[in-house]
Design a protein around this nucleic acid. Sequence first.
DNA 1: GCTAAACTGTCAAAAATATGACAATCCAAG
DNA 2: CTTGGATTGTCATATTTTTGACAGTTTAGC
Lengths: 236, 236
Amino acid sequence: MNATLPRLWFDALHANPWFAALPAPERQALLAEAEVLRLPSGAMLFHQGDAALAAGGGFYALVQGLIKVSTVRQDGREAILAVLEPGNWFGEISLLDGSPRTHDATALTAIDVLVVPPAAFTRQMQGLAFAQAIAALLAARVRGLYGLMEDTTLRGLRARVAHRLLTLARGDATQSPDVRPAVSLPQEALAMMLGITRQTLSKELAALARDGVLKLGYRRIEIVSVAALEAVVHDT
Amino acid sequence: MNATLPRLWFDALHANPWFAALPAPERQALLAEAEVLRLPSGAMLFHQGDAALAAGGGFYALVQGLIKVSTVRQDGREAILAVLEPGNWFGEISLLDGSPRTHDATALTAIDVLVVPPAAFTRQMQGLAFAQAIAALLAARVRGLYGLMEDTTLRGLRARVAHRLLTLARGDATQSPDVRPAVSLPQEALAMMLGITRQTLSKELAALARDGVLKLGYRRIEIVSVAALEAVVHDT
DNA sequence: GCTAAACTGTCAAAAATATGACAATCCAAG
DNA sequence: CTTGGATTGTCATATTTTTGACAGTTTAGC
């Protein structure tokens, strides 16, 4: 593929800082190797435990729609690690070490995904610039995960909620510098990201709304003051 | 340095799977570039917020002693991310993205550390094999962090304690396949890794000891049955 | 428009965890 | 060999979070 990359896809991809920083030859090579995969809402891109090197596996770029990255326990409880937005590249870990997928990836909407097959990915990894870029991508991942870790061990609930909201408002994994004015998702989902119950979250959100930091709606949390929300993260 | 690498250091380094898998030329280059740094117990190798690219920064290998990797809050509460053992390489994230150190690194004992200066690290990253190896190292880090994340969101307290014990018994970051029969550290430290209080941990340990899975001593937790401990991780 | 399903707000009771406190034990330094 | 600091075990109480439940609100699909 390549020749006729839809404008929307092109924009989404180039809005991603990692892809934008990738040298042009590698960028083009990656797109040239990619196949397009279109999935309906609710479909699963891969399951926890899947072999990534097998056919159907690969290095993915989401170009349209939303993907939920999560893990489920036997008892049915689910933890949402992230909600991916267009522009995000993911799935490289399993390709690098050949181990099974660590998470489920589920389409929250109808999605369009670029798939770089395992063989092509491995071939790209033979190039210095690409290998360096993957190292940079992983460094960013590690940093993001450190942030999440500290949340759970060091921050109070209030600050954790505030931090997660800011992360989501910045596009979660993408982490663009500009903050969106609102995040749209059921409170249940946000609760699963934080590892708490919906009821507990509801109470925290209500408190933040009382303080004028948030405005709550149906499947929607509006951030009235980014500064105030950031203050909550640091104080609490 | 290189010519006279003490036997103990050599063994520690080569016991580390990442270093052992590194191609010989890169392995030698890394050691050739490294300087030896010796610090007394309690000294800090670096602080959260330090510029890693500055003089004194670098890519580190611990060859002797123990290092605590942690973050502290304003109020004094501390979260321990890991306790590094000889053979571990660390500190690459900040070198890759030029951002400040994410954690404090404190010597728990007198330590010997190999330091690859920032310039040398960056030079090595211009080589394909090394860049690939760093990608692999980061992939392993990410996987480890995913494991820790799931602990806090998905597992009950009992399972979390069991999992952390097993991780420590495998050498924490090193994660050697063989499990040590006991971990030696104050319960307080373990509690800080788990983000819980010492009292709560004490109760959990007592319960595991009652079940015959552990034996408790002074600054020491003996693992009576690895299998039983693993069962606790998966069941609870 | 209507209606069923999804979602939010709230409550009371139960369970888990933190706090603060104290005695008992261990061990390393003198 | 002794002693003080470090460590553990264990309480009772306070706080936080979960569980289960239900009513009211919003939305999407018919």
